[in-house]
Structure formats: structure tokens, C-alpha cells
Computed example of a mutant assay.
Amino acid sequence: MTPTIGPAVDAGQEAIPDPARAGEGSGALSPPTHRVVRVLELLSRYATERLSLARIVREAGLSRATAHAVLAQLTADGWTVRDDDGCYGIGLRLLTVTRRAEAAFPLRRTALPHLRTLSEQVGVPVFLAERDGENIVVTEVVGNPSAGWIRQGRRLPLAPPVCREFIAWAPESARTAWLATADPAHRDRLTGVLTEIRARGYSVERLVDDSTPMLEALAGLRDSPITAALRAQLGSVITDLITIDYLPDELGAENAVVTLAAPIRDRGGAVVAAVVSCPDTRLTKQELNDLGAATSATADRITTGGEDEG
């Protein structure tokens, strides 16, 4: 899985709006509420730190008077705390609400210890990707993936050619609809790849040799404030840099593997999430098979654990 197509939104980067790109309250139904949310989002991103009022003003894009008023109320209500140096951090009330909210996301709680065990076992970072409608969201990350796009809150569209592990086991009608939105030049390969993913149990994301620097540069441009037409053109160029997955006769002595993803299913068998290992290196065929087996086994254990908990 890698963010290569469509207007993916990096929730981690976009949580705190840039005042140069959006005026205070622009697009907000309730600007005062929006300002409070921006402050809380900022503090939550630096949960182990204390931020000065000046930094909050700068990064949240608020006036000093507004930020001071928001923080004074939040601190009085226990949502934030203020230390002797006048710096702010998250408060116990916010922490309490956060812990209560975790009950609404049992899969993450079930998955996290398994992700940690897998990362220790295979020696690479791993993450949990969950389906949210027609998007995939990175919800837990263990380790420090080398790919800059892998971070908590990263949102990707469920669009060809990525996120194949979410489609490979879908009903034929869903696979057909998904393939219909793919570049016509890739449809035959994607059809074969989906069959191979079902057979071996996981997808593999690979890149054409020496394309990574160019891909990162293009991805950065795509996520910048540009027109929809230019974003689509960039997506097309990025697509041309990708070789979609590996078919059995394409595996060589060494194989470039960015990520490897295995499905997590609900009680009805639908794929609702994926365990994604992130070697971002070249692996022998045996190393690739071993990583695939370990990642798939972890996804199966999470599936079973999620059913037991549910």
C-alpha cells in the first residue's frame, strides 16, 4: 500500500490549517468552535510537550487575544493545563474523554499488541490501515517507517491501483466496479494481481527502480494547494512510475518491496482493515515469502481476537 493515486489527504499534516491558505473560520459552520478544535488538535499533536502561547498563536493561525481566551476557558474546564512558565498542554479531562472514546474503536485496541509483536519479530515498522467508507485510514503505527507518508491519520482513497488487499476478496461485482475506475492500461494486470493476492494472502507494493525520489517529489506537489486538473495529471505521472505488485514469475534474486499488506476480516468475512509491514528494501524471494507469512498470520490473529472481543 502506497499513496500514489488521487487527492489523498494527510490528516496529520492538515489537522491545523495554515493561516496563509485559509482565513480564520473560513469554511467553518461555527468559527468559535472551529478555533477551539484547532487548539486542541495542535496540543494533541504534541501531547508530551508544553507549547508556549506564541507557538500556539503561530501554528493554529489565531490572534494572540483569541488564543489566550480559548486557552483560558479550556484550562478553567480542565481540558488543558498551564505550567508556571505559561506554556500549555493537554489536561486530564481531555485524556479521560480520549480513553472513553477508545471503546468505540475496539479493533485498534485488539491490534496494537499484535502489531508490536510482529514488528519485533520481523524487524521492520508496521501499521494498521482501516477502511472508512471509500477511504483507508492509517490508525496505528509501530516503529518509524522510512516512507514519509506513513503516519497516523493518513487518509487514502480506495482507488486503483492501491489498497488491493481490500478489494481482492470482495464480491465479483465490487471488484468489477473497482477495476472499471482503473487506468485501462492497467486493468488486465490488476485482474491478475487480485487473483494472485487471494492465492497467496497479501499484496506487495513495489516501485520501479530509482523512482522513489521522483515519486516523493511528485506526491508532495499533489498534496499542495493545486487545481483538480493538475492533481489528476500528477496522479497519472505517478501511476506511470509504479509496477503493480509481483506476479509469481516476476520474483527474482532480489525484489524491491516498499510495503506488504494482509487483510483483517469482520465476522462476515469482509475485509475491514489490513496489517501492513514496511520493509522498504530489497528482499530475496524467501525473505518476501517469510514476511508475507508472518504478516498474514498476524492479520489472522487480529481477526480472531476482534471476533472474540466483539
Rank of each mutant, 00 (worst) to 15 (best):
V137Y: 13
V141T: 02
G143T: 03
N144G: 00
A147P: 05
A147L: 15
W149P: 00
I150G: 00
R151M: 08
R151W: 10
R151N: 08
Q152E: 04
R154W: 15
L156F: 10
P157A: 03
P161H: 11
V162F: 13
C163K: 12
R164P: 03
F166L: 04
I167R: 02
A168P: 06
W169M: 06
W169V: 00
W169T: 00
W169N: 00
A170C: 08
E172A: 04
S173I: 14
R175Q: 12
A177V: 06
W178H: 07
L179S: 06
A180K: 08
D183M: 09
D183L: 11
P184F: 15
A185I: 02
D188F: 04
L190Y: 14
G192D: 13
V193T: 08
T195K: 15
T195W: 15
E196H: 11
E196R: 03
R198L: 08
R198S: 09
A199S: 11
R200H: 10
R200P: 03
S203Q: 06
V204M: 09
V204I: 15
E205T: 04
R206L: 08
L207V: 09
D209Y: 14
D210R: 13
D210C: 05
D210E: 14
D210P: 03
T212I: 14
T212Y: 15
T212P: 06
M214K: 10
L215M: 10
E216K: 04
E216I: 03
A217G: 01
L218Q: 04
A219D: 08
G220R: 15
R222G: 02
R222E: 00
S224A: 06
S224M: 06
P225G: 01
T227Q: 13
A228H: 11
A229H: 04
L230S: 05
A232I: 09
Q233W: 09
S236L: 05
I238E: 02
D240L: 01
D245C: 01
Y246E: 00
P248I: 03
P248V: 05
D249N: 03
L251C: 02
A253L: 07
E254T: 09
N255Y: 03
A262H: 13
A262R: 12
A262N: 07
P263C: 00
I264M: 01
I264P: 05
I264Q: 02
R265F: 14
A270G: 08
V271L: 14
V272F: 15
V275Y: 07
V276L: 09
